[in-house]
């Protein structure tokens, strides 16, 4: 546990030292704030209700784009510069490296989301708000972020090129974000059911609406675990002939 935290600390510090974190936070707050408060036919004033739904809708997409940019260098850069060898010849396991990196990106997302709490306070002060659904909304965002971070780290772990890692993470992400949902309508029976279960929007919507079902949690949990284990596997691969 201590080793994981050392990695997490280092990576998180790296985000803040390299401006990455600030850019992420500023653009994320800017985009989500703009669409929540000012623009479009879905902002708080237009729909005239005290609700965080517009925010959760836009944050879901902003994070989807941003997370691959945050995870792309996690493993790829280590391969490229050879520092992976430096890291793995210290008393630390492959799994600890992967989870440490996962946690650092996750904490950065937590920080970004924590900075949107003023939105919540503002909206709560202008009208009656459903506190429960705000809570589950944040939970949904955290879960979907964790899932994409885990997939992003996997994408980064199979290449030493950051751009490839970014695009790959986006492509994998698009399947969960859109494609599974769309294709599920074209199939009936079990194939359709499986595809619609794979659709992230479906689980995200159900959580943000305030319905937390164990099947949603299992869904996110398994994506996170599979992503991390696949990343570990691509580290272990160096020993397989």
């Amino acid at each position: 546990m201590k080793q994981i935290w050392i990695i997490t600390k280092k990576e998180l510090k790296g985000y803040f030292d390299s401006l990455m974190a600030y850019i992420m936070i500023v653009v994320f707050l800017g985009l989500s704030g703009f669409f929540t408060w000012l623009y479009g036919n879905n902002d708080v004033f237009f729909i005239n209700r005290a609700t965080m739904q517009p925010f959760f809708g836009i944050a879901y997409w902003t994070l989807f784009i941003f997370i691959p940019a945050l995870t792309m260098k996690q493993m790829a850069e280590e391969y490229k510069t050879g520092t992976i060898e430096l890291m793995l010849t210290k008393p630390i396991s492959d799994w600890q490296v992967v989870t440490g990196k996962f946690l650092s990106t996750f904490l950065l997302i937590v920080i970004s989301l924590a900075l949107t709490i003023p939105y919540y306070i503002s909206i709560a002060s202008i009208g009656p708000i459903d506190h429960g659904s705000v809570l589950t909304g944040y939970l949904g965002l955290l879960l979907m972020s964790a899932a994409y971070i885990s997939l992003g780290i996997f994408a980064s772990s199979i290449t030493s090129n950051q751009i490839v890692a970014f695009l790959l993470a986006l492509i994998i992400g698009i399947f969960f974000q859109i494609l599974f949902g769309i294709t599920s309508t074209a199939f009936s029976g079990i194939t359709g059911d499986v595809l619609s279960y794979m659709d992230m929007q479906y689980h995200y919507n159900s959580i943000t609406r305030g319905v937390i079902d164990s099947k949603n949690l299992v869904y996110f949990g398994s994506i996170i675990l599979i992503g991390l284990m696949a990343s570990e596997l691509s580290l272990v691969k160096r020993n397989i002939n």
């Binding site: 280092k10 790296g14 030292d17 390299s18 510069t81 050879g82 520092t83 992976i84 060898e85 430096l86 010849t89 210290k90 008393p91 630390i92 396991s93």
Partner: peptide, 21 residues
């Protein structure tokens, strides 16, 4: 392996380092 690693100081080939630290 962890016990062995903690007894070893290793300078890998080409000396990889985190350049932005």
């Amino acid at each position: 392996p962890d016990k062995v690693k903690s007894n070893i100081g290793y300078l890998p080939e080409n000396n990889p380092l985190y350049l932005d630290m």
